[in-house]
Design a protein around this nucleic acid. Structure first.
Lengths: 289, 289
DNA sequence: CCCGTTTCGTGAATCGTTTCAAACATCCCT
DNA sequence: AGGGATGTTTGAAACGATTCACGAAACGGG
């Protein structure tokens, strides 16, 4: 039988199959920024898990734009996917409800939408921010700056929240915050320039993600700042590049693959209103001695 | 009419449409490595072009594995996409022929498959390699090493070929070649360590891509090597991170967006046997003074 | 005013797969 | 050997959008 199939080059028509069954054996994965390793690693974790379950993945990119996110969802809805894993940008409860009435389970990454009944998987960013600052404090840094992006996505806000709380607990004054318009290495570079213009450098810097931290460390190093002696730097995400940076970067590791895997499990189990929170971990490297 | 559609929340069933029309208004994009910005930028260029043409993109990742590539193609074939843009790993003429008989145009990126009749878009890697070495020679470097990956994908082989030829033309001895098992920043770091163990450092290094160059520059810098004074380094791709590296990286810029756009045009025009070759450009930054 | 032509709208057939049902063959038990 | 139960084969209906054909209505010209 299989021999005959191969012989004739038969390929099942997925369109007909989806039409008849009313639903495809396909899952949509909508990711915010495909140039950020954090998201691609998460998506790969999801893909691996869902492949082994016999599903195929449809990738989409929202590029952080509500408009493009809407188009992605329209597309997935038209395709009749059986579920959607998404890092939401401007997704609201009504859209989720509509998808759910059409039989598509929605699982959110790193964000909850109240009243929608959908499940979510996230990493505890408040804890991560707190871990970062507690580490800086533990190695004797008291004058701590925070580099983030504006507008600030919820995960970054939570990281900053955790950081501020840890700082207050330690009895230090509130941190200097620098906001950039994006969260790339180039933004980190600009942040470093701004810090250098101030004249006095803080002795600890917490960047909201690794890409910014890398750009910042590079620019500081170029200007003769010794890291971690003059200034300790800690990033967030633990992307591959963090380990091979000029000054290997201390960072908060996120279980990205695990995140994708859990999300897949929730979609396939058709779970309602379940919220999984994973714990981040501190990874100490040279940038904080 | 449109108001009524929105009112009732009607969503066209793409499966039924595809079934009836025999072909989806969708294009497949198969990419080799989603963690390499070179590929994602190319894919984004393609997506933008094909969105404006009213098509949707189906992304797949082969992860450089022939097995996974096959699965991606099976999937796209089942979906009945109207065309495929692919950076092939182990794609042979017979598979292409089969796809074409099913009405799917195939356009190859950075590689040609002889006898398949399909079109291709590539960047002139031989020229790029030559540009790189000529630049190193022009700034007075004579002892030049080449860092590549093993097994060496065709584009890397071409870059090395162009580099060797330019070196021969300039009348210098053949270069030292270091091969790593992958082409990541971590591999570049290992390459640097190996070079340092040799004792005498070459005064010019050409890395087959920017990620490796960044890892290498970081490791050399960490060990006190002054770039470009002690050793000039040139990368390849001109990814975003190249400009913000500790030592901003001289590199060969590839028109990645343009690559994706041209590929889209060829697929949509249903072009047979057309081969577009784009020209790379030298971008001089600090790593080569 | 009638006929020919165009336009519009309705209905039926189609795409390839799945699913359900009915028909048919097989087998065991009484 | 007949009846019930089980398993297998064959056939037909359905999914929803599209397309084509057909008939009705509108329109223009003679």
């Amino acid at each position: 039988m299989q021999a005959a199939i191969d012989e004739l080059g038969f390929v099942r028509n997925e369109a007909a199959r989806a039409l008849r069954k009313g639903v495809a054996h396909t899952l949509g994965v909508v990711v915010e920024d495909i140039s950020n390793p954090y998201f691609t690693d998460m998506a790969r974790g999801a893909e691996a898990a869902l492949n082994t379950a016999g599903y195929d993945a449809l990738w989409c990119t929202s590029d952080g734009s509500p408009e493009k996110e809407r188009r992605c969802l329209d597309f997935l809805e038209e395709q009749g996917v059986s579920g959607i894993i998404i890092t939401p940008v401007a997704l609201d409860a009504s859209r989720i409800a509509r998808l759910r009435t059409r039989g598509m389970q929605v699982v959110l990454i790193d964000r909850r939408v109240p009243g929608a009944g959908s499940s979510s998987v996230s990493v505890d960013h408040v804890m991560g921010g707190s871990l970062a600052v507690r580490h800086l404090v533990a190695i004797g840094r008291t004058d701590i700056a925070f580099v983030t992006a504006e507008p600030e996505p919820p995960p970054l806000r939570q990281r900053r929240g955790g950081a501020l709380r840890a700082l207050a607990r330690a009895g230090y004054p509130p941190a200097l915050t620098i906001s950039m318009t994006e969260s790339s290495a180039a933004a980190g570079q600009s942040a470093a320039r701004r810090l250098l213009e101030f004249g006095t450098l803080p002795n600890g810097i917490f960047c909201a993600n690794d890409l910014m931290a890398i750009g910042l460390v590079n620019e500081l190093t170029r200007n003769g700042v010794k890291i971690p002696q003059d200034c300790a730097v800690i990033g967030y995400d633990d992307i591959d590049l963090a380990a091979t940076a000029v000054v290997p970067l201390t960072t908060i590791h996120q279980p990205r693959r695990e995140l994708g895997r859990k999300a897949t499990e929730l979609v396939l189990a058709d779970a309602d209103n379940q919220h999984i929170v994973l714990a981040p971990e501190l990874v100490v490297r040279d940038s904080s001695e």
